[in-house]
Design a protein around this nucleic acid. Structure first.
Length: 527
RNA sequence: GCGGGUGUAGCUCAGGGGUAGAGCGCAACCUUGCCAAGGUUGAUGUCGUGAGUUCGAAUCUCAUCACCCGCUCCA
Protein backbone atom coordinates (compact mmCIF):
# COMPACT_ATOMS: atom_id res chain seq x y z
CA UNK A 1 0.00 0.00 0.00
CA UNK A 2 1.29 3.42 -0.92
CA UNK A 3 1.72 5.81 1.95
CA UNK A 4 0.41 8.76 -0.05
CA UNK A 5 -3.23 8.26 1.03
CA UNK A 6 -2.09 7.85 4.62
CA UNK A 7 -0.28 11.18 4.47
CA UNK A 8 -3.27 12.79 2.81
CA UNK A 9 -5.53 11.43 5.53
CA UNK A 10 -3.17 12.63 8.24
CA UNK A 11 -3.26 16.09 6.65
CA UNK A 12 -7.05 15.92 6.49
CA UNK A 13 -7.25 14.95 10.13
CA UNK A 14 -4.97 17.86 11.04
CA UNK A 15 -7.26 20.26 9.21
CA UNK A 16 -10.24 18.85 11.05
CA UNK A 17 -8.50 19.13 14.42
CA UNK A 18 -7.45 22.67 13.60
CA UNK A 19 -10.98 23.70 12.59
CA UNK A 20 -12.41 22.11 15.72
CA UNK A 21 -10.17 24.26 17.86
CA UNK A 22 -10.45 27.43 15.78
CA UNK A 23 -14.22 27.37 15.75
CA UNK A 24 -14.79 26.09 19.26
CA UNK A 25 -15.83 22.47 18.80
CA UNK A 26 -13.14 20.70 20.81
CA UNK A 27 -10.33 21.93 23.06
CA UNK A 28 -7.61 19.99 24.77
CA UNK A 29 -8.42 19.55 28.44
CA UNK A 30 -6.42 21.87 30.73
CA UNK A 31 -4.63 23.27 27.71
CA UNK A 32 -3.20 26.30 29.54
CA UNK A 33 -1.57 23.92 32.01
CA UNK A 34 0.01 21.85 29.25
CA UNK A 35 -2.90 19.52 28.63
CA UNK A 36 -4.20 16.39 30.29
CA UNK A 37 -3.39 13.22 28.41
CA UNK A 38 -6.39 11.57 26.82
CA UNK A 39 -8.91 14.18 27.94
CA UNK A 40 -10.80 16.70 25.81
CA UNK A 41 -13.32 19.46 26.41
CA UNK A 42 -16.16 20.38 24.09
CA UNK A 43 -16.37 24.08 23.29
CA UNK A 44 -19.58 26.01 22.62
CA UNK A 45 -20.27 24.39 19.24
CA UNK A 46 -19.06 20.92 20.23
CA UNK A 47 -21.35 21.01 23.25
CA UNK A 48 -24.33 21.80 21.01
CA UNK A 49 -23.40 19.08 18.53
CA UNK A 50 -22.99 16.47 21.24
CA UNK A 51 -26.24 17.48 22.93
CA UNK A 52 -28.08 17.19 19.62
CA UNK A 53 -26.72 13.67 19.14
CA UNK A 54 -27.58 12.55 22.65
CA UNK A 55 -31.04 14.10 22.56
CA UNK A 56 -31.85 12.49 19.22
CA UNK A 57 -30.62 9.10 20.45
CA UNK A 58 -32.70 9.42 23.62
CA UNK A 59 -35.77 10.56 21.70
CA UNK A 60 -35.57 7.71 19.18
CA UNK A 61 -34.69 4.97 21.66
CA UNK A 62 -36.55 5.94 24.79
CA UNK A 63 -39.21 8.59 24.25
CA UNK A 64 -40.60 7.31 20.96
CA UNK A 65 -40.68 3.66 22.08
CA UNK A 66 -42.86 2.10 24.72
CA UNK A 67 -40.56 -0.86 25.34
CA UNK A 68 -37.46 1.01 26.51
CA UNK A 69 -37.09 3.03 29.70
CA UNK A 70 -34.24 5.23 30.82
CA UNK A 71 -31.76 5.13 33.67
CA UNK A 72 -29.12 7.53 34.92
CA UNK A 73 -26.79 5.59 37.20
CA UNK A 74 -24.02 6.80 39.46
CA UNK A 75 -20.51 6.92 38.07
CA UNK A 76 -18.92 5.86 41.35
CA UNK A 77 -19.35 2.13 41.48
CA UNK A 78 -19.43 -0.33 44.37
CA UNK A 79 -16.39 -2.57 44.15
CA UNK A 80 -18.51 -5.70 44.51
CA UNK A 81 -20.39 -4.78 41.32
CA UNK A 82 -17.19 -4.81 39.32
CA UNK A 83 -15.86 -7.90 41.07
CA UNK A 84 -19.03 -9.76 40.08
CA UNK A 85 -18.92 -8.44 36.53
CA UNK A 86 -15.36 -9.66 36.14
CA UNK A 87 -13.81 -6.23 35.66
CA UNK A 88 -11.74 -6.23 38.85
CA UNK A 89 -10.20 -9.60 38.14
CA UNK A 90 -10.13 -9.61 34.39
CA UNK A 91 -9.58 -6.01 33.42
CA UNK A 92 -5.85 -5.95 34.00
CA UNK A 93 -3.16 -7.89 32.23
CA UNK A 94 0.33 -8.03 33.72
CA UNK A 95 2.79 -7.07 31.01
CA UNK A 96 6.57 -7.35 30.67
CA UNK A 97 8.89 -5.52 28.27
CA UNK A 98 11.94 -7.15 26.74
CA UNK A 99 14.98 -5.09 27.73
CA UNK A 100 16.69 -5.88 24.45
CA UNK A 101 14.04 -5.85 21.72
CA UNK A 102 11.51 -3.68 23.61
CA UNK A 103 8.81 -6.19 22.70
CA UNK A 104 5.87 -6.25 25.08
CA UNK A 105 4.72 -9.64 26.32
CA UNK A 106 1.77 -10.79 28.37
CA UNK A 107 3.37 -12.09 31.58
CA UNK A 108 0.83 -14.89 31.86
CA UNK A 109 1.62 -16.14 28.36
CA UNK A 110 5.38 -16.59 28.74
CA UNK A 111 6.31 -20.29 28.68
CA UNK A 112 8.48 -21.39 31.65
CA UNK A 113 12.08 -21.97 30.63
CA UNK A 114 15.04 -23.65 32.25
CA UNK A 115 18.77 -23.23 31.73
CA UNK A 116 21.74 -21.17 32.83
CA UNK A 117 21.36 -17.49 33.56
CA UNK A 118 24.36 -15.30 32.83
CA UNK A 119 24.38 -12.20 35.01
CA UNK A 120 26.38 -9.09 34.16
CA UNK A 121 27.10 -5.88 36.03
CA UNK A 122 27.89 -3.82 32.97
CA UNK A 123 30.18 -3.43 29.99
CA UNK A 124 33.18 -1.37 28.98
CA UNK A 125 35.24 -0.42 25.96
CA UNK A 126 38.84 -0.07 27.22
CA UNK A 127 40.19 1.60 24.05
CA UNK A 128 37.84 4.57 24.34
CA UNK A 129 37.39 4.48 28.09
CA UNK A 130 33.62 4.18 27.70
CA UNK A 131 31.74 2.05 30.21
CA UNK A 132 28.25 1.41 31.48
CA UNK A 133 27.28 0.01 34.85
CA UNK A 134 23.90 -1.63 34.78
CA UNK A 135 22.73 -5.08 35.76
CA UNK A 136 21.50 -7.40 33.06
CA UNK A 137 20.92 -11.12 32.55
CA UNK A 138 20.49 -13.55 29.70
CA UNK A 139 19.12 -17.05 29.84
CA UNK A 140 21.00 -19.71 27.89
CA UNK A 141 18.61 -22.58 27.57
CA UNK A 142 19.86 -26.11 28.10
CA UNK A 143 22.17 -27.05 25.26
CA UNK A 144 22.59 -23.47 24.03
CA UNK A 145 26.00 -21.95 23.44
CA UNK A 146 26.95 -19.68 26.33
CA UNK A 147 28.72 -17.35 23.88
CA UNK A 148 25.34 -16.63 22.38
CA UNK A 149 24.24 -15.30 25.77
CA UNK A 150 27.31 -13.04 25.87
CA UNK A 151 26.59 -11.81 22.36
CA UNK A 152 23.04 -10.94 23.44
CA UNK A 153 24.41 -9.09 26.47
CA UNK A 154 26.79 -7.07 24.26
CA UNK A 155 23.86 -6.11 22.03
CA UNK A 156 21.99 -5.01 25.12
CA UNK A 157 24.85 -2.84 26.39
CA UNK A 158 25.52 -1.49 22.89
CA UNK A 159 22.26 0.48 23.03
CA UNK A 160 23.85 2.74 25.66
CA UNK A 161 26.70 3.71 23.32
CA UNK A 162 24.50 6.53 21.98
CA UNK A 163 25.98 7.14 18.58
CA UNK A 164 29.58 6.18 19.32
CA UNK A 165 31.25 4.27 16.50
CA UNK A 166 31.92 1.17 18.55
CA UNK A 167 30.96 -2.33 17.49
CA UNK A 168 29.05 -4.38 20.07
CA UNK A 169 31.67 -7.07 19.50
CA UNK A 170 34.38 -4.79 20.93
CA UNK A 171 32.61 -4.48 24.30
CA UNK A 172 34.00 -6.26 27.34
CA UNK A 173 31.40 -7.65 29.70
CA UNK A 174 31.88 -6.89 33.40
CA UNK A 175 31.08 -9.05 36.41
CA UNK A 176 29.77 -12.19 34.71
CA UNK A 177 28.46 -14.97 36.94
CA UNK A 178 25.99 -17.78 36.30
CA UNK A 179 23.13 -19.52 38.01
CA UNK A 180 20.92 -22.45 37.03
CA UNK A 181 17.18 -21.73 36.93
CA UNK A 182 14.16 -23.98 36.41
CA UNK A 183 10.82 -22.90 34.92
CA UNK A 184 11.53 -19.19 34.94
CA UNK A 185 9.25 -16.72 33.16
CA UNK A 186 11.62 -13.80 33.58
CA UNK A 187 13.29 -14.20 30.17
CA UNK A 188 12.12 -13.55 26.63
CA UNK A 189 11.68 -16.91 24.84
CA UNK A 190 12.72 -15.22 21.59
CA UNK A 191 16.19 -14.07 22.59
CA UNK A 192 16.80 -15.03 26.23
CA UNK A 193 16.92 -11.39 27.31
CA UNK A 194 15.82 -10.39 30.80
CA UNK A 195 12.34 -8.87 30.95
CA UNK A 196 11.15 -6.01 33.10
CA UNK A 197 9.18 -6.90 36.22
CA UNK A 198 5.58 -7.74 35.31
CA UNK A 199 3.49 -4.64 35.70
CA UNK A 200 -0.26 -4.67 36.03
CA UNK A 201 -2.12 -2.41 33.65
CA UNK A 202 -5.28 -1.80 35.57
CA UNK A 203 -7.57 -0.13 33.16
CA UNK A 204 -10.05 1.02 35.80
CA UNK A 205 -9.86 4.27 37.73
CA UNK A 206 -9.78 3.40 41.39
CA UNK A 207 -10.68 5.80 44.15
CA UNK A 208 -11.62 5.85 47.81
CA UNK A 209 -15.03 6.69 49.22
CA UNK A 210 -15.10 8.95 52.23
CA UNK A 211 -13.10 12.11 52.80
CA UNK A 212 -10.95 10.49 55.48
CA UNK A 213 -10.43 7.14 53.78
CA UNK A 214 -6.85 5.96 53.72
CA UNK A 215 -5.14 4.72 50.58
CA UNK A 216 -4.59 1.32 52.10
CA UNK A 217 -8.18 0.89 53.26
CA UNK A 218 -9.53 -1.78 50.92
CA UNK A 219 -13.07 -1.50 52.23
CA UNK A 220 -13.30 2.11 51.03
CA UNK A 221 -12.27 1.27 47.46
CA UNK A 222 -14.69 2.32 44.73
CA UNK A 223 -14.23 2.63 40.98
CA UNK A 224 -15.23 5.08 38.30
CA UNK A 225 -17.37 2.91 36.08
CA UNK A 226 -15.65 1.46 33.01
CA UNK A 227 -19.02 1.16 31.25
CA UNK A 228 -22.56 2.35 31.89
CA UNK A 229 -23.99 -1.14 31.44
CA UNK A 230 -23.32 -2.44 34.94
CA UNK A 231 -25.71 -0.07 36.69
CA UNK A 232 -28.42 -1.23 34.31
CA UNK A 233 -27.91 -4.85 35.30
CA UNK A 234 -27.61 -3.97 38.97
CA UNK A 235 -30.85 -1.92 38.86
CA UNK A 236 -32.64 -4.48 36.70
CA UNK A 237 -34.87 -5.62 39.55
CA UNK A 238 -35.85 -2.11 40.62
CA UNK A 239 -36.72 -1.08 37.09
CA UNK A 240 -38.69 -4.26 36.60
CA UNK A 241 -40.72 -3.69 39.76
CA UNK A 242 -41.41 -0.01 39.21
CA UNK A 243 -41.96 0.31 35.47
CA UNK A 244 -44.49 -2.45 34.75
CA UNK A 245 -42.39 -3.47 31.75
CA UNK A 246 -42.73 -6.89 30.17
CA UNK A 247 -40.25 -8.90 28.14
CA UNK A 248 -38.90 -7.99 25.73
CA UNK A 249 -37.91 -4.56 27.03
CA UNK A 250 -34.86 -2.38 27.25
CA UNK A 251 -33.15 -0.04 29.70
CA UNK A 252 -31.19 2.80 28.13
CA UNK A 253 -28.53 5.01 29.56
CA UNK A 254 -26.29 7.83 28.40
CA UNK A 255 -23.36 8.70 30.57
CA UNK A 256 -19.67 9.05 31.23
CA UNK A 257 -17.36 6.08 31.60
CA UNK A 258 -13.66 5.92 32.39
CA UNK A 259 -10.86 3.67 31.25
CA UNK A 260 -7.18 4.12 31.92
CA UNK A 261 -6.24 3.51 28.31
CA UNK A 262 -2.60 2.57 28.00
CA UNK A 263 -2.20 4.83 25.03
CA UNK A 264 -4.92 7.39 24.21
CA UNK A 265 -4.74 8.07 20.50
CA UNK A 266 -6.45 9.54 17.50
CA UNK A 267 -7.82 12.80 18.86
CA UNK A 268 -10.96 12.16 20.91
CA UNK A 269 -11.35 8.61 19.57
CA UNK A 270 -9.68 6.81 22.43
CA UNK A 271 -10.12 9.04 25.48
CA UNK A 272 -9.75 8.13 29.10
CA UNK A 273 -13.03 9.81 29.96
CA UNK A 274 -15.77 9.21 27.44
CA UNK A 275 -19.51 9.03 27.08
CA UNK A 276 -21.53 5.99 26.14
CA UNK A 277 -25.05 5.53 24.83
CA UNK A 278 -26.07 2.04 25.82
CA UNK A 279 -29.19 -0.08 25.71
CA UNK A 280 -29.57 -3.38 27.49
CA UNK A 281 -32.47 -5.04 25.72
CA UNK A 282 -33.79 -7.96 27.79
CA UNK A 283 -35.51 -10.84 26.10
CA UNK A 284 -36.27 -14.53 26.11
CA UNK A 285 -33.33 -16.79 25.19
CA UNK A 286 -34.96 -17.87 21.95
CA UNK A 287 -35.23 -14.25 20.73
CA UNK A 288 -31.63 -13.21 21.39
CA UNK A 289 -30.07 -13.91 18.02
CA UNK A 290 -32.99 -12.47 16.07
CA UNK A 291 -33.05 -9.29 18.14
CA UNK A 292 -29.30 -8.86 17.67
CA UNK A 293 -29.85 -8.72 13.91
CA UNK A 294 -32.81 -6.37 14.33
CA UNK A 295 -30.80 -4.04 16.51
CA UNK A 296 -28.01 -3.97 13.98
CA UNK A 297 -30.46 -2.72 11.35
CA UNK A 298 -32.02 -0.21 13.74
CA UNK A 299 -28.64 1.19 14.64
CA UNK A 300 -27.48 1.44 11.03
CA UNK A 301 -30.65 3.39 10.25
CA UNK A 302 -29.91 5.70 13.16
CA UNK A 303 -26.49 6.57 11.78
CA UNK A 304 -28.08 7.27 8.43
CA UNK A 305 -30.58 9.59 10.08
CA UNK A 306 -27.84 11.69 11.64
CA UNK A 307 -25.93 11.99 8.40
CA UNK A 308 -23.51 9.07 8.34
CA UNK A 309 -24.30 7.13 5.16
CA UNK A 310 -24.34 3.38 5.30
CA UNK A 311 -21.58 3.01 2.75
CA UNK A 312 -19.16 4.77 5.09
CA UNK A 313 -19.93 2.20 7.77
CA UNK A 314 -18.63 -1.32 8.02
CA UNK A 315 -20.31 -4.14 9.86
CA UNK A 316 -17.99 -6.73 11.32
CA UNK A 317 -19.46 -10.03 12.43
CA UNK A 318 -17.04 -10.98 15.18
CA UNK A 319 -16.08 -14.61 14.56
CA UNK A 320 -16.11 -17.47 17.05
CA UNK A 321 -13.10 -17.36 19.31
CA UNK A 322 -12.73 -13.57 19.14
CA UNK A 323 -15.91 -12.72 20.99
CA UNK A 324 -16.13 -12.48 24.75
CA UNK A 325 -16.69 -15.99 26.02
CA UNK A 326 -20.28 -15.29 27.10
CA UNK A 327 -21.35 -13.69 23.82
CA UNK A 328 -23.14 -15.76 21.21
CA UNK A 329 -23.11 -13.02 18.59
CA UNK A 330 -21.36 -9.68 18.30
CA UNK A 331 -21.43 -7.10 15.54
CA UNK A 332 -19.15 -4.11 15.43
CA UNK A 333 -20.27 -1.05 13.50
CA UNK A 334 -17.19 0.71 12.22
CA UNK A 335 -16.72 4.05 10.51
CA UNK A 336 -14.11 5.11 7.96
CA UNK A 337 -12.22 7.71 9.97
CA UNK A 338 -9.32 9.46 8.24
CA UNK A 339 -7.00 7.58 10.62
CA UNK A 340 -8.52 4.22 9.79
CA UNK A 341 -11.63 2.12 10.05
CA UNK A 342 -12.57 2.14 13.71
CA UNK A 343 -15.39 0.98 15.91
CA UNK A 344 -18.33 3.25 16.71
CA UNK A 345 -20.63 0.74 18.32
CA UNK A 346 -20.77 -2.87 19.38
CA UNK A 347 -23.97 -4.90 19.35
CA UNK A 348 -23.52 -7.95 21.50
CA UNK A 349 -25.84 -10.78 22.42
CA UNK A 350 -24.56 -11.41 25.94
CA UNK A 351 -26.95 -14.20 26.92
CA UNK A 352 -27.85 -14.24 30.63
CA UNK A 353 -24.22 -13.79 31.65
CA UNK A 354 -24.59 -10.34 33.25
CA UNK A 355 -27.76 -10.96 35.23
CA UNK A 356 -26.32 -14.34 36.18
CA UNK A 357 -23.11 -12.98 37.68
CA UNK A 358 -24.95 -10.25 39.60
CA UNK A 359 -27.53 -12.70 40.87
CA UNK A 360 -24.68 -14.83 42.14
CA UNK A 361 -22.63 -11.90 43.40
CA UNK A 362 -25.46 -10.22 45.30
CA UNK A 363 -27.31 -13.35 46.35
CA UNK A 364 -30.55 -11.65 45.22
CA UNK A 365 -32.83 -13.23 42.65
CA UNK A 366 -32.89 -11.30 39.36
CA UNK A 367 -35.36 -13.67 37.76
CA UNK A 368 -38.30 -12.52 35.69
CA UNK A 369 -41.72 -14.04 36.33
CA UNK A 370 -43.83 -14.54 33.26
CA UNK A 371 -47.50 -14.10 34.20
CA UNK A 372 -48.76 -16.01 31.16
CA UNK A 373 -46.60 -19.09 31.24
CA UNK A 374 -46.14 -18.95 35.03
CA UNK A 375 -42.44 -19.61 34.59
CA UNK A 376 -39.47 -17.96 36.25
CA UNK A 377 -36.46 -17.30 34.09
CA UNK A 378 -33.32 -15.23 33.87
CA UNK A 379 -33.67 -12.95 30.83
CA UNK A 380 -31.05 -12.82 28.14
CA UNK A 381 -29.79 -9.48 26.87
CA UNK A 382 -28.81 -7.80 23.63
CA UNK A 383 -26.55 -4.78 24.09
CA UNK A 384 -26.24 -2.02 21.49
CA UNK A 385 -23.42 0.03 22.99
CA UNK A 386 -22.47 3.19 21.12
CA UNK A 387 -19.59 5.53 21.73
CA UNK A 388 -21.00 9.04 21.99
CA UNK A 389 -17.74 10.93 21.55
CA UNK A 390 -16.72 8.60 18.75
CA UNK A 391 -19.97 9.31 16.98
CA UNK A 392 -19.47 13.06 17.44
CA UNK A 393 -16.03 12.66 15.89
CA UNK A 394 -17.52 10.65 13.04
CA UNK A 395 -20.11 13.39 12.49
CA UNK A 396 -17.34 15.97 12.33
CA UNK A 397 -15.19 13.90 9.97
CA UNK A 398 -18.15 13.09 7.77
CA UNK A 399 -19.26 16.73 7.62
CA UNK A 400 -15.88 18.21 6.70
CA UNK A 401 -15.70 19.26 3.08
CA UNK A 402 -13.64 21.59 0.95
CA UNK A 403 -15.23 23.00 -2.16
CA UNK A 404 -13.66 25.06 -4.93
CA UNK A 405 -15.81 28.10 -5.72
CA UNK A 406 -15.27 30.56 -8.55
CA UNK A 407 -16.57 34.11 -8.30
CA UNK A 408 -17.81 36.38 -11.11
CA UNK A 409 -14.29 37.60 -11.79
CA UNK A 410 -13.14 34.02 -12.31
CA UNK A 411 -11.21 33.95 -9.06
CA UNK A 412 -11.22 30.57 -7.40
CA UNK A 413 -10.99 29.97 -3.70
CA UNK A 414 -11.72 27.17 -1.30
CA UNK A 415 -14.92 27.06 0.70
CA UNK A 416 -14.71 24.96 3.85
CA UNK A 417 -18.13 23.57 4.68
CA UNK A 418 -19.23 21.37 7.54
CA UNK A 419 -22.10 19.53 5.93
CA UNK A 420 -23.80 18.46 9.14
CA UNK A 421 -27.26 17.06 8.87
CA UNK A 422 -29.56 19.94 9.98
CA UNK A 423 -30.74 17.54 12.69
CA UNK A 424 -27.38 17.60 14.49
CA UNK A 425 -25.94 20.93 13.30
CA UNK A 426 -24.89 22.98 16.34
CA UNK A 427 -26.39 26.17 14.95
CA UNK A 428 -29.54 25.91 12.84
CA UNK A 429 -29.80 29.40 11.44
CA UNK A 430 -27.70 32.55 11.17
CA UNK A 431 -29.52 35.88 11.24
CA UNK A 432 -27.83 38.95 9.75
CA UNK A 433 -28.71 42.56 9.09
CA UNK A 434 -27.21 43.41 5.73
CA UNK A 435 -25.46 46.43 7.23
CA UNK A 436 -24.91 47.04 10.87
CA UNK A 437 -24.77 50.82 10.71
CA UNK A 438 -28.44 51.03 9.76
CA UNK A 439 -30.45 50.84 12.99
CA UNK A 440 -33.64 49.82 11.15
CA UNK A 441 -31.93 46.74 9.69
CA UNK A 442 -30.42 45.81 13.04
CA UNK A 443 -33.75 46.20 14.84
CA UNK A 444 -35.53 44.03 12.29
CA UNK A 445 -32.82 41.38 12.43
CA UNK A 446 -33.02 41.31 16.23
CA UNK A 447 -36.77 40.84 15.86
CA UNK A 448 -36.24 37.80 13.60
CA UNK A 449 -33.68 36.44 16.06
CA UNK A 450 -36.20 36.71 18.92
CA UNK A 451 -38.84 35.05 16.75
CA UNK A 452 -36.71 31.98 16.07
CA UNK A 453 -34.61 31.62 19.22
CA UNK A 454 -37.26 29.81 21.31
CA UNK A 455 -37.42 27.08 18.67
CA UNK A 456 -33.86 26.53 17.49
CA UNK A 457 -30.24 27.59 17.96
CA UNK A 458 -29.86 30.98 16.30
CA UNK A 459 -26.62 32.82 15.68
CA UNK A 460 -26.90 36.57 15.25
CA UNK A 461 -24.02 38.23 13.41
CA UNK A 462 -23.63 41.77 12.20
CA UNK A 463 -19.86 41.95 11.87
CA UNK A 464 -18.01 42.17 8.56
CA UNK A 465 -19.27 41.83 5.00
CA UNK A 466 -22.24 39.62 4.29
CA UNK A 467 -20.25 37.10 2.21
CA UNK A 468 -17.81 36.62 5.02
CA UNK A 469 -20.63 35.99 7.45
CA UNK A 470 -22.05 33.31 5.16
CA UNK A 471 -18.66 31.61 4.94
CA UNK A 472 -18.20 31.74 8.66
CA UNK A 473 -21.47 29.87 9.10
CA UNK A 474 -20.42 27.37 6.41
CA UNK A 475 -17.37 26.54 8.46
CA UNK A 476 -19.44 25.66 11.51
CA UNK A 477 -22.07 23.85 9.47
CA UNK A 478 -25.07 26.16 9.91
CA UNK A 479 -27.57 24.88 7.34
CA UNK A 480 -29.50 28.15 6.86
CA UNK A 481 -28.82 31.88 6.94
CA UNK A 482 -31.33 34.71 6.89
CA UNK A 483 -30.45 38.25 5.79
CA UNK A 484 -32.53 41.32 6.50
CA UNK A 485 -32.16 44.05 3.87
CA UNK A 486 -33.87 47.24 2.71
CA UNK A 487 -36.51 45.25 0.86
CA UNK A 488 -37.47 43.79 4.22
CA UNK A 489 -38.14 47.32 5.44
CA UNK A 490 -40.41 47.98 2.46
CA UNK A 491 -38.13 50.49 0.70
CA UNK A 492 -38.68 48.80 -2.63
CA UNK A 493 -42.39 48.29 -2.44
CA UNK A 494 -44.89 46.54 -0.23
CA UNK A 495 -44.54 43.30 -2.13
CA UNK A 496 -41.15 42.64 -0.59
CA UNK A 497 -41.94 44.14 2.80
CA UNK A 498 -41.26 41.67 5.65
CA UNK A 499 -39.56 39.16 3.40
CA UNK A 500 -35.97 38.05 3.89
CA UNK A 501 -33.22 36.33 1.95
CA UNK A 502 -32.90 32.68 2.97
CA UNK A 503 -29.57 31.20 1.99
CA UNK A 504 -29.00 27.46 1.97
CA UNK A 505 -25.60 26.14 3.06
CA UNK A 506 -24.90 23.30 0.64
CA UNK A 507 -26.18 24.85 -2.60
CA UNK A 508 -25.50 28.49 -1.60
CA UNK A 509 -28.83 29.23 -3.28
CA UNK A 510 -30.95 32.13 -2.10
CA UNK A 511 -34.67 32.59 -2.06
CA UNK A 512 -37.08 35.19 -0.77
CA UNK A 513 -39.34 34.12 2.07
CA UNK A 514 -41.84 36.03 4.23
CA UNK A 515 -40.77 36.34 7.86
CA UNK A 516 -44.16 34.87 8.84
CA UNK A 517 -43.29 31.58 7.11
CA UNK A 518 -39.73 31.38 8.40
CA UNK A 519 -40.32 29.45 11.61
CA UNK A 520 -42.39 26.70 10.02
CA UNK A 521 -40.10 26.40 7.03
CA UNK A 522 -37.03 25.96 9.19
CA UNK A 523 -38.64 23.66 11.75
CA UNK A 524 -39.70 21.31 8.95
CA UNK A 525 -36.10 21.00 7.87
CA UNK A 526 -34.26 20.60 11.17
CA UNK A 527 -36.47 18.03 12.96
C1' G B 1 5.37 1.51 27.71
C1' C B 2 9.19 1.69 23.36
C1' G B 3 11.12 4.27 18.87
C1' G B 4 10.77 8.68 15.70
C1' G B 5 8.79 13.71 15.03
C1' U B 6 6.63 18.31 16.71
C1' G B 7 5.69 22.41 20.31
C1' U B 8 6.85 30.46 18.53
C1' A B 9 0.04 35.19 18.02
C1' G B 10 -6.72 32.43 17.56
C1' C B 11 -4.91 29.28 12.96
C1' U B 12 -0.75 27.95 9.47
C1' C B 13 4.22 28.62 9.96
C1' A B 14 9.25 31.43 9.35
C1' G B 15 13.30 32.79 12.38
C1' G B 16 17.46 31.54 15.57
C1' G B 17 22.84 33.53 21.93
C1' G B 18 21.63 40.54 22.05
C1' U B 19 14.20 44.90 21.62
C1' A B 20 9.41 38.72 18.78
C1' G B 21 8.12 38.02 12.80
C1' A B 22 4.74 37.00 8.31
C1' G B 23 0.13 35.49 6.10
C1' C B 24 -4.64 34.51 7.33
C1' G B 25 -8.03 35.30 11.13
C1' C B 26 -9.92 38.70 15.04
C1' A B 27 -11.72 43.81 16.85
C1' A B 28 -13.25 49.01 15.65
C1' C B 29 -14.77 52.58 11.99
C1' C B 30 -16.29 53.94 6.78
C1' U B 31 -19.30 52.06 2.25
C1' U B 32 -27.53 51.16 -0.02
C1' G B 33 -25.76 46.23 -0.33
C1' C B 34 -25.80 39.14 -0.93
C1' C B 35 -20.67 34.71 -1.04
C1' A B 36 -13.84 34.92 2.58
C1' A B 37 -15.13 42.69 -1.30
C1' G B 38 -12.35 47.57 -0.59
C1' G B 39 -10.23 51.34 2.65
C1' U B 40 -8.44 53.20 7.56
C1' U B 41 -7.05 51.90 12.49
C1' G B 42 -5.96 48.40 16.32
C1' A B 43 -5.05 44.27 19.75
C1' U B 44 -2.77 39.66 20.63
C1' G B 45 2.71 36.07 22.68
C1' U B 46 5.97 33.88 29.99
C1' C B 47 8.55 31.20 21.91
C1' G B 48 4.73 24.18 25.89
C1' U B 49 6.66 23.91 31.28
C1' G B 50 10.86 23.68 34.76
C1' A B 51 15.92 23.75 35.71
C1' G B 52 21.09 24.36 33.96
C1' U B 53 25.11 26.91 31.01
C1' U B 54 25.87 32.23 29.96
C1' C B 55 26.95 39.16 31.19
C1' G B 56 22.53 37.79 28.39
C1' A B 57 18.50 31.88 26.38
C1' A B 58 12.85 31.85 22.30
C1' U B 59 17.74 30.09 20.39
C1' C B 60 22.55 25.71 23.58
C1' U B 61 22.04 21.39 27.47
C1' C B 62 19.03 18.36 30.62
C1' A B 63 14.40 17.04 32.58
C1' U B 64 9.25 17.15 32.11
C1' C B 65 4.31 17.69 29.83
C1' A B 66 1.27 17.48 25.58
C1' C B 67 0.22 16.30 20.53
C1' C B 68 1.37 13.51 15.80
C1' C B 69 3.39 8.90 13.26
C1' G B 70 4.94 3.67 13.87
C1' C B 71 5.03 -0.51 17.32
C1' U B 72 2.27 -2.24 21.60
C1' C B 73 -2.41 -2.27 23.99
C1' C B 74 -7.64 -1.82 23.58
C1' A B 75 -12.61 -6.76 28.80
Amino acid sequence: MSDAPAEKNAALMEKIVSLCKRRGFIFQSAEIYGGLNGCWDYGPLGAELKRNLKEYWWRKNVQERDDIVGLDGSILTHQEVLKASGHVGGFSDPMCDCLLSKARLRADQIPPQSGTVHYFDGASHPESGWSVSRGYAVLAKEGEDENKARKTARQYYAQFLSGKQISPKALELVGERTETVVDSTRYNPENGSLLTEPRAFNLMFRTHMGASAEDGDESSVAYLRPETAQSIFVQFKNVLETSRVKLPFGIAQIGKSFRNEINPRNYTFRSREFEQMEIEFFCRPEDGLRLTDEWLEARLSFYEEIGIPRDHLHVVDIPDGERAFYSQKTYDIEYEFPFGIQELEGIAYRTDYDLGVHQKGSGKSLEYFDEETKEKMLPHVVEPSAGCDRTVLALICEAYDEEAVTDEKGKTDTRVVMRFSPRVAPVKVGVFPLLKNKPELVAKAREVQRLLAPHMTVFYDEAAAIGRRYRRQDEIGTPFCVTIDFDTLGENGDELRDTVTLRERDSMEQRRIPIAELRGYLLDRIA
